[in-house]
Each structure stands twice: as structure tokens, then as C-alpha cells.
Design a protein around this nucleic acid. Structure first.
Lengths: 148, 148
DNA sequence: GAAGATTTCGAGACTCATTCTCGCTTGCCC
DNA sequence: GGGCAAGCGAGAATGAGTCTCGAAATCTTC
């Protein structure tokens, strides 16, 4: 597990290479995401750090996303969720998504499987003239509290 | 490839078991989705079948989704897209998603890979007390027309 | 370290995809 | 064929997310 100060270092570097400052607000957002054990909604972020204004949080999350520090997760639930990117945390992972409450949990898969997948997807991308950046796997189901 | 009339048969059955009628409008929507070679946005559906009112299309897509006939795909793009479910088409597949224009294309993966994946995801679900229904794999990248 | 330039902040207005409302139409059942 | 439940559709309402713009913070240059 990567330390909080390392996360801040990476964020600073990423923002720097996009001509963006690492302001106090952005720091708070990154910290909130780093401490959370699951991707957070905007409300989740502002509840964790109540000093943050809603509009600034939206703006700064967009800046952080642009700089590759955070990643936006959109589910059928109508609040987007945010997490630090793999480039920041160093951990490739996927998601369990609850269709009922929208909860998102992180999971990792065996490396061999990831390799196989990567090869297949690469081939599929080439076949369809897609410039493939990365893949995303979600297991869609019901979380513990939403189970019947 | 499954025929259009088979698609309608399945849709009829699915709706029936949810105490829903298979009305002319719903038929048009299913037909539009069946003929399209990629998931359609709401606008895409109403453009294909201009007789459809917007509000009715939204309502009927919700009904069809509830009945398991269509599936909603949400990307960062701010129009949801719809396609027939695998239960209707009989074809398990995944998506290439363009981060720029939101285009979604269908791809299939080798069966062995799907099997491996299924096992791993099943295990991950159990570990997190998730009742897993199905998985979703997206390759995120840039489509031919959005490539730099 | 002060003046000016530039960036960020935040409260509220605004946008627009989606959902809701409600009177009208359709079609099913006896 | 009358009654009634379901579906229809135009427009209003909702609300997540974006934009605006004056104020505050931060950087730059001397």
C-alpha cells in the first residue's frame, strides 16, 4: 500500500505536467479519496471534507481527472463516483457494482488472467480500429445490504 | 444470428412474465435496437423511429429494461445507450467505448477466457458477500474517427 | 514586500437529460 | 358496446453537473 505522502507527490507531479497547481482544495479531495476504502460520490467527498464547496469540488475533480490523478466511475446510479487512478495508487483493480444502491467495491484479479485479457482486448481493439487505452471489468450484482 | 421475429417472441414472453403488454411502441423500440449494429442513444432510437414520442420512449425503455429485454449502458458521455440483453440476442459480448464521442461497439472474447473470468469473478463476489449476476468488460479508448 | 497579473474560489444561476404529471386514447374483458 | 385499466404524449418538474463572475489567494517582477 502506497503512503499518503507518496500519493500527494504523484498528484503534484501529474498536476505540474498539466500546468496546474496543487492547491489546498485539491489536496483535500485527493486525501479524501486516498483514505476512502471505496470510490466516493461528490457528496461523499464534500461530507468527508465539509470545507469544500460543491462547485469547487466539481471543478477540481474535473481538473484532477484531466491530469490523470482521479478517475470518474459512472454507474446506472445517478451520482458519479471518483477514485484515484492506478497511476497514482499503483494498484490495478476492478469493481463490484451494486445495482441497487450503487455501491462500488474494489477487487483484484490474478495476474495471468489479466495478461490473457489484455492480449484478447488488444486484438479486439485492433480489429475495430480502436486505439485502446485500458480495460475495465465490473461484476454487477447486489451488495450485502441490498441482498434480498 | 437470431431473427427479428425470434427477438419479438422473446420480448413478448419477457414482458408477459412481468405483466406488461408488448405494445406497438415497444415493438418499434425493440426493432430499432435489433436492427442497429451498435447500442443506441435515446435520440438514436427516436431518429430511427420518428413516430416515437420522447417521453414514451423513456418510459418504455424503462419498462423493457425492467423486464430484462433491454440493457442500459452508461458511459461518461451524457447520453445513456441501450441494447437488447444477452437473454434476448443469445450472444454474450462486451464493449469498446470511445472516451471522446461516446460511441460503443460490440466485441466477443474467446470462450476459454470467459470461463476463466467467470470463475475468478465468482470467487471475488463470494469474498465480498456480493450476489453476482453478471460481468461487464469494457475496453476504453478512442474510436477510428476520434483518433488523433 | 508591494503592485500588478494570473489563477482559484464559491454562491448562485443555468443547462439539459431524464422523470413525472395528467388528461386523452387504446384495447381488453364481461 | 360499456366500463376500466393500461398506455400514450406534450409539457412541466427535477436535479446532477456546469458555467458565471466578482472576490480571494497566489505568483511574479522589481
Amino acid at each position: 500500500m502506497i503512503s499518503l505522502s507518496e500519493v500527494h507527490d504523484v498528484a503534484l507531479r501529474f498536476l505540474g505536467s498539466h500546468d496546474q497547481r496543487y492547491t489546498a482544495n485539491r489536496r483535500l479531495i485527493v486525501q479524501a479519496l486516498a483514505m476512502a476504502d471505496a470510490p466516493l460520490t461528490i457528496d461523499g467527498v464534500t461530507e468527508t471534507e465539509p470545507m469544500l464547496a460543491l462547485s469547487s469540488t466539481y471543478r477540481n475533480l474535473a481538473v484532477l481527472e484531466e491530469a490523470g490523478v482521479v478517475h470518474r466511475i459512472v454507474t446506472s446510479d445517478d451520482h458519479a463516483r471518483f477514485e484515484l487512478t492506478e497511476d497514482v495508487t499503483g494498484a490495478h483493480h476492478h469493481h463490484l457494482v451494486c445495482t441497487d444502491c450503487g455501491l462500488v467495491l474494489d477487487v483484484t484479479l490474478p495476474d495471468e488472467l489479466e495478461d490473457l485479457l489484455h492480449q484478447s482486448l488488444e486484438a479486439a481493439a485492433k480489429e475495430n480500429s480502436f486505439a485502446g487505452a485500458h480495460h475495465r471489468i465490473d461484476l454487477i450484482g447486489l451488495c450485502q445490504s441490498c441482498k434480498p
